[in-house]
Amino acid sequence: MTTTMLSSKHVTEIKASAPVLAEKGEAITTRFYEQMFEAHPELLNIFNHRNQKQGTQPRALMQTLYAAAVNIENLEALLPTVQKIAHKHVALQIVPEQYPIVGHYLIKAMKEELGDAASDELLEAWGQAYEIVADIFIEAEKKLYQETKNQRGGWNGFRPFVVDAITKESDGITSFYFKPEDGNALPTFSPGQYITLRVLLPDDPYTHLRHYSLSDAPGKDHFRISVKRETAPGYPDGAISNFLHDHLDVGDQIPISAPAGVFTVDTNADHPLVLLGAGVGQTPLISMAKGALDANPDRKIDFVYTAKNEDNHALLKEMNVLNDQYDNFQAHVRYTDTDDHINRELLQAVTKNDAAEFFLCGPGSFTADMKEILENDLNISESNIQREMFKPFV
């Protein structure tokens, strides 16, 4: 990644704008989305409406802009973020023609919200910086599209699938099994990845795209997701998850894009794994555990999990099967209804091997707490920790 096209003056302008972005960035990105959707309502078929209503989407974009400003001379520092966002874009089928639209309304919003602080030099600098970053994303996504399509069973776009089975897993979580309508092969995937469903609600002019982690091991004749029935402020009843729970039936067709995502475990490695999950955050982790053990039955895995109670513990039977079948798999379950929590002592007991890799998935507060204990109390290197919070893309 390079900024050689930017003059030193433009680099200085962008770096100097970082404090302003920290102060007014969310106002800029909120205005950006408003104007872009007004001019291009077709993009509402792609973006998550709930994230817009709750402000999480503008906030995510603001954080990315700020990071770009701070790291403008060292964009390599953003590579992990670029890869994660590129996977999201491919899952949503973002195309190069959409990048100029985003750039136009982003600079327009900057000019309006910054007022006198938006000099011609600053806007020119950000315009050029955006083009450079857009080209980086376009190239990364082009490569991913090619890799996705060229693998055995792979495809681009949204492929028709049929609901093969539906299983209630717990209070609030149901598993859906999908098979390709054409009966052809499915591609393999890296445990931890997600698929994207395209849902059309009754009396809604827009389609809705949702990412759901694959909750089974790769190599099956189906894809499985395990979906929590959501409720959220500003978007009562979690429209998409509730639609799946209440209206999706066996035999129904639904379009799905190919597996994507960078929160993945290497099944070819043999170092120990520690999987820490809360609530529905266990879905990619159970896929990781099953996929890793399928590839290497001797791999040491500790699965640390918390839920409200046993009634809320989805996929409990599968966890117990792994616990019984593999001497090297150990489940550590804590239920908060009985004030039984994941604490420092438990984490210390599963961090004895310096080579272990840690995967954290659940609510933001949970993963932040776990990461803090691992790094600050138990001296686990940040490079050995991967964290997923199901945050919106930009």
Rank of each mutant, 00 (worst) to 15 (best):
I94P: 01
L92I: 04
V95S: 13
E113C: 10
V133I: 10
E97D: 11
A125S: 10
D116E: 14
I94W: 05
P96Q: 05
L114Q: 09
I107K: 00
E97H: 07
W126S: 05
K108T: 09
Q128R: 15
G103K: 01
S119C: 08
Q128L: 15
P96A: 09
G115M: 06
I132V: 05
P100H: 01
D120R: 13
Y99L: 02
L123R: 09
Q93L: 14
W126A: 05
Q93T: 15
A117I: 10
Y99F: 05
E124P: 14
M110K: 01
A117P: 10
V133W: 02
I107A: 04
Q98W: 00
Q98H: 03
V102C: 02
E113P: 12
Q98M: 06
D116P: 15
Y105I: 02
V133S: 02
D120Y: 11
A125Q: 09
A118D: 05
P96C: 04
D120Q: 13
A117Q: 13
A129D: 06
Q93A: 15
E121F: 12
Q98V: 01
L106I: 08
E97G: 11
K108C: 08
A117T: 10
I101A: 05
A117C: 11
L106T: 00
K111S: 12
V95N: 15
P96D: 06
E131T: 15
V102S: 03
E113N: 10
S119P: 06
E113Q: 12
K111I: 11
P96L: 04
V95Y: 14
S119L: 06
I101Q: 03
V95I: 12
M110L: 04
L114K: 10
A118H: 05
A117D: 14
E113M: 13
V95G: 12
W126K: 07
D120N: 12
Q93S: 14
H104F: 13
E113T: 08
E124Q: 15
A109I: 10
E112R: 01
V133Y: 03
L106K: 00
L106A: 01
K111R: 11
I107H: 06
L123F: 07
L106H: 00
P100A: 00
L106E: 02
E97L: 06
V95H: 12
K108L: 12
P100F: 00
V102K: 00
Q128K: 15
K111F: 11
H104K: 12
Q93N: 15
E97Y: 06
E121H: 12
L114F: 10
G103W: 01
A109Y: 07
E121T: 09
E131R: 14
E124W: 14
P100W: 00
V133D: 01
E112A: 10
Q128E: 14
K108M: 09
E124S: 15
Q93P: 15
E112P: 03
G127P: 11
I107F: 00
I132W: 03
A125F: 04
A117W: 09
Q93G: 14
A125Y: 04
Y130S: 07
V102G: 04
I132F: 03
I101P: 04
Y105K: 05
E97T: 07
S119Y: 05
S119M: 05
M110Q: 02
L114Y: 11
A109G: 07
A129Q: 08
G115W: 07
A117S: 14
A109S: 11
L92D: 09
L122G: 04
M110V: 01
Y105L: 02
V102T: 04
L123P: 09
A109K: 06
V133Q: 02
G103Q: 02
L122S: 04
L122F: 04
V133H: 03
